[in-house]
């Protein structure tokens, strides 16, 4: 049965009169693992910014958890790991626990303080990503893969239903990428968190995602991985704008 937590209808967006997204119609079903793929400049990050309310669509409508985005207030239901998360100031003096606590800042609210229950939530989120031993370490002293896990913990700490990850594996080594996908499956299968992952790595997505959406200004494809692998070379070339061969592989 259809149970969308995100619905986009006829959404268009342009930066300074340069069309970036045109007539986007799609849904994200609760419990799914959607891989959003597409070339650079295809509008993937713009689409995420629209979903997060950072941009307003010039045309069309967006619904989050059944509520029009203009009226949506429950932003804690959405966790976000940004593309820029890995480019933070590594000299910033913050422990893992302090970084993860930032995910609760808005939820706790202005002029209120963290209590014991919040501290337990922080410890739980850090444990979910397998980093409990590093709770009091400075974030800058961790490896790239470990830092990535901490940013996921920061997104998880407010107990979101939807987790959005914008190219999270950029700059992470192969071994840690594999561990990262194992973690995503755990969150998706066992914790029931809906995932939206933006990536260039279409080959890996065919093994991990339950749905794949291809975006290049418009939505060229939205279906399951087996339907995606059956796309013809002409379809893929039309989508990417150049010759392309998909190499399907496990990490």
């Amino acid at each position: 049965m259809s149970n969308p937590i995100v619905t986009m209808k006829n959404v268009s967006y342009a930066y300074d009169n340069k069309p970036t997204l045109k007539d986007i119609n799609f849904e994200i079903q609760r419990g799914s693992f959607l891989g959003l793929v597409g070339p650079n400049g295809g509008g993937k990050t713009t689409l995420i910014k629209l979903l997060l309310g950072l941009h307003k669509p010039q045309n069309g409508s967006i619904q989050l958890f059944g509520t029009p985005i203009q009226k949506f207030k429950d932003w804690n239901k959405i966790g976000f790991v940004s593309q820029k998360a890995n480019t933070f100031n590594r000299g910033f003096p913050a422990t893992v626990s302090e970084v993860v606590s930032m995910g609760l800042t808005a939820k706790v609210g202005y002029m209120k303080f963290f209590n014991q229950s919040h501290k337990k939530q922080i410890e739980k989120a850090v444990s979910q990503v397998g980093m409990s031993d590093y709770l009091h370490e400075n974030i800058g002293d961790l490896s790239g893969g470990q830092q990535q896990r901490i940013f996921i913990a920061r997104a998880l700490v407010s107990n979101p239903d939807l987790l959005i990850l914008d190219e999270p594996t950029v700059g992470v080594d192969t071994e840690n990428v594999q561990k990262f996908y194992e973690l995503l499956h755990l969150l998706n299968d066992e914790n029931g968190i809906t995932l939206l992952l933006i990536t260039h790595d279409t080959g890996t997505m065919t093994h991990h995602a339950t749905d794949i959406a291809c975006l290049n200004k418009t939505l060229h494809f939205h279906g399951n991985p087996s339907q995606y692998t059956q796309l013809s070379e002409q379809d893929l070339s039309a989508f990417y704008g150049h010759q392309l061969n998909v190499v399907s592989h496990h990490h």
């Binding site: 932003w75 976000f80 940004s82 998360a85 933070f88 910033f92 913050a94 970084v99 202005y110 002029m111």
Partner: peptide
Amino acid sequence: TLFFKELFTLSFDEEHAVVSGI
């Protein structure tokens, strides 16, 4: 004291702070 967590969150990652509703 009253705005410590907001100031700290903003200082570390402004984009994340804005997305989370600060």
